[in-house]
Amino acid sequence: MTMLDVLDLSISYGAIEAVKGVSFTVNEGEIVTLIGANGAGKTSILRTISGLNRPKKGDIKFLGESIIHKKPQKIVSSGISQVPEGRHVFAGLTVYENIEMGAFLRKDKQEFKKSIETVYNHFPILKERKNQDAATLSGGEQQMLAMGRALMSKPKLLLLDEPSMGLAPIFIKEIFNIIEAIKEEGTTVLLIEQNANMALSIADRGYVLETGKIVIEGTGKELMKNSEVQKAYLGG
């Protein structure tokens, strides 16, 4: 079943056209990755799915319903949650309080405790540090916190913007293992990632963006074997 349909999407900032007629789909239960150089339009697409940008033209359908005129909080409550680039944890609040912030739209207080336990199962370090100021965590731990916070809204679709950026290799591997575990538990993932090798190694399908257009698409395995992708993104 198609969960997300991006249809002929164009996004402009003044005279600059960042995204030019992009179309792609994300099916339920998949990890789909968008790869491309900085400035290719990847983050603009995620921000538009989240309702933070408005497109110049095109449509975005989530579970068959157009969301381009919905407010960001309505998009979250419909089942989409984004982990932004650069993590953006709330300094001055504890790790636990940050996690709690992810559930602010939820009404089911009974399920809340279960969700906290799920987050702690994925990220045991957050349980250990739950009373610590979020700002004192390492970069990798802050990324885990941002992902845990996003999972608290019980998203059907999780949008991840550059989860490995600035992290030590040991944390990168751990983050990608957790993304796979999140998928196994039934959450669909749309992933933007500079580390094309890691992204394609876990992705069911991928799309390559260049200067605001999709130029190649295929399964993760196909793209890893593609000579153009290898040359441009995989150091081949």
Rank of each mutant, 00 (worst) to 15 (best):
T2F: 06
M3K: 04
L4D: 06
L7H: 07
S10W: 12
I11M: 15
Y13M: 10
G14I: 08
V19L: 11
E28T: 04
I31R: 05
I31E: 01
I31V: 09
G39I: 05
G41A: 11
K42N: 05
S44P: 07
I45F: 01
R47W: 05
N53I: 11
K56C: 09
K57V: 09
E65F: 02
S66A: 08
I75W: 06
I75A: 07
S78R: 08
I80R: 01
I80P: 01
I80T: 00
S81Y: 01
G86K: 01
R87L: 05
R87H: 12
F90L: 14
A91D: 12
G92S: 13
G102C: 11
L105K: 04
R106F: 02
Q110H: 10
K114E: 15
I116N: 12
T118Y: 03
V119G: 15
V119N: 11
I125Q: 15
K127I: 13
Q132A: 13
Q132M: 14
D133G: 14
L137N: 14
S138W: 15
G140K: 13
G140W: 08
Q143R: 14
M147S: 08
R149F: 12
A150V: 01
S153K: 00
K156M: 02
L160R: 11
P169G: 14
I170M: 09
I170K: 08
E174W: 04
I179F: 06
E184N: 13
L190R: 11
L191F: 02
N197Y: 04
R205E: 07
E210H: 03
T211K: 03
I214A: 09
G218V: 08
T219A: 06
L223Q: 08
K225D: 15
Q230W: 05
K231M: 04
